[in-house]
Design a binder for these strands. Structure first.
Lengths: 134, 134
DNA sequence: TGGCAAGATTATAATGATTATAAAATAAAA
DNA sequence: TTTTATTTTATAATCATTATAATCTTGCCA
């Protein structure tokens, strides 16, 4: 639950945080900070972009939120922190989850001597919709 | 050869471009645009950062150079465009190549209906040196 | 409950990477 | 050479993100 998630992190329960965490909960749209801000602003007119950045920063640090750096111009966020890749369509620019069996990092690479803590897999191409629609 | 690479792309052979492409040739340090600029500035005092950005842009577009978005604060570049991953050490911040057997994208993921043209694999953790030295 | 202190929010400014602009320079073709 | 399209350059503009500092709130405790 949203409240538990914040409490677990020792964070105060503010309306802004509750709204941000609620919006992210189960969200598969991979919003940017600004998109989160724009979606919540109508209901929370006092909301500041800085608060969105602060909150996602805390969530990413604590492992509750995943940062997606598939595109150079802005970061996106994904509340699904289980291992999975992301697909960026160069036609429609959509950013989609790639549900996958977990990637076996250790067997894929010769990581002798390295400690691999996390990974990101980004795939670029043309998505289903764009392939059909053309 | 450097000259051929530029000619193949239909680009004029300017000293700046030759210098940038030469610096990148075989370079495994994954420099940022600013690092390229700083390394060349002493020998090419007239060099502008804009020229570095213009040149890497052309090279990336043409597939001669790979853009690395492993860190959110700046882009890095890699002249090795054969499939391989990258490792970012959270201790010493070094960015290293992960020589790997090619990743079998199609078998890893259910990409039915998607056209995968390219991918990036980033691994985060602690590198050999930092593990030993501590 | 009311007051307090730590932490949060806000508006705003600052930062810093990247991109745009437009004038001056130059490579390459005739 | 002359010419022209391209390139370089200095500089300004853009835009995402971070820092700042004043104001406000949550959560705790008397």
């Amino acid at each position: 639950m949203v409240v538990d998630k914040l409490k677990k992190l020792g964070l105060k329960l503010t309306p802004q945080r509750l709204a941000i965490v609620s919006l992210l909960q189960g969200n598969t749209r991979h919003p940017s900070a600004e998109e989160i801000y724009n979606e919540l602003k109508p209901q929370y007119p006092s909301l500041s972009l800085a608060t969105v950045y602060n909150t996602v920063e805390v969530l990413v640090r604590s492992g509750e939120l995943r940062e997606i750096m598939i595109a150079a111009d802005r970061r996106h966020f994904d509340p699904n922190v289980t291992p999975h890749g992301h697909f960026l369509c160069r036609s429609c620019k959509s950013l989609q989850d790639l549900d996958a069996r977990p990637l076996e990092i250790e067997t894929l690479f010769d990581l002798k001597g390295y400690l691999a803590e996390d990974y990101a897999l980004y795939i670029y191409g043309i998505c289903q919709k764009c392939l059909e629609g053309e």
